[in-house]
Amino acid sequence: MTDLYAAVIPQAPYVIGAYGIIWLGLLGFVFMVFNRIGRLEKELRVLEESVERRAKS
């Protein structure tokens, strides 16, 4: 058990760092893209309504 802890503890920051980077990267990518898509869809709806209104008038 002592050997196990002796191996794990010095290496742990690097393993945590690697997984932290991966999870932050993946979640960050998804969040950013969904955020931008949501904003674009909102803008698109507003513009499409404007186009419809103009076509009717």
Binding site: L26, F29, F34, R36, I37, L40, L44, L47, S50
Partner: peptide
Amino acid sequence: MLGYAFYQLRLREEELNERLEALKIEL
């Protein structure tokens, strides 16, 4: 699977952007 999803999501964002630009020009 995530790689495929990321690619498709970015493509959708790009398509929305193009549609938005086209509508802006139309207006």
